[in-house]
Amino acid sequence: MSKKSSILAGLLSATVAGALLAGPAAAAWPDHPINLIVVAGAGGGSDFTFRLLARELEKAGQPINVINQAQGGGIVGYTTYTSAKPDGYTLGQLSPFAQFKILGQANFTTASFTPIALVNVDPAAVHVAAKGKLKSLGDIVAALKKDPASLRISCGGTCSASWDIPFVSLMLAEGIDVAKINLIPASGSAAGLQELAAGGLDVVLCSIPETDALKDAGLIETVAVLSATRLEKYPKVPTAKEVTGKDVTGGTWRGVAGPAGMDPALVARIEGAVHKAYETSSFQAGMKERGFGTTYLDAAGFTAFIKAHEAQTRQVMEALGVAKAP
């Protein structure tokens, strides 16, 4: 009994000491290892991006544990780091999150996080079978205008996520009755693309680098990318704006964030470290090699960015009729 209470006392005093040290903590950061939660499985694009970033961040003097918690589409990982102490030693990946609350899965809002910096944006793209009837984004829009349910469109992963939200947003701008669109979830972009090649689908939405192999085999083609300008690595793919005239962009993005309530001085210090890591040539080259985009936004810019993300997601999901009744 006495042993137990002494452990408790020790824990309590550690917590109190931690609270007292909060002020000068910003200057000392980092003085012990940092946990960085990645809300995706090891080996994927997110894991790659954050391991690359962590390798550069470690030069600040402390090891970084990259911890993959992909369960529940990332809900488990977001829960882990948003409920951690806002001391700068538990950070996490922040990627599209607004759909969780709208679907009634979890309660994350902008207020759940302390955004630190955005490091990557990958635009969504529209892919069709090489031998199919659809040859361009114009064909797809025309077919959907005629009958919104006529095409089988794969979300390239779960629906109401990075790839289909911007696409539906574009179709909304075109005046199509999006609630009737036949959106089909896939267990991943690879599965969706293979099914596209097998003739089981008409359109797949996902990022461009994922389609390289099947494109080389002459099985599929990319008809449009939802970004402001054409991508450096894929100069032949037109943007959605060039084809339709509607300026709709979107896709997935990855940034560093912490739990809500972090000290602004600490945020500034961490942001400085992230920016330095982002600027290194090894991070830039590593991202370019895998075909991942690099875009930087500081803490203020990233906060505005995720607010816009929340608004776009809500608008699209309400139009789709998938939002949970409040």
Binding site: Q71, I75, V76, T79, G104, P185, V322
Partner: peptide, 16 residues
């Protein structure tokens, strides 16, 4: 498919 939680009893661990 629909993203609805099943048999999770509101636990984020079970949601995973």
């Amino acid at each position: 498919v629909s993203g609805m939680p099943r048999f999770t009893f509101g636990s984020s661990d079970l949601m995973g």
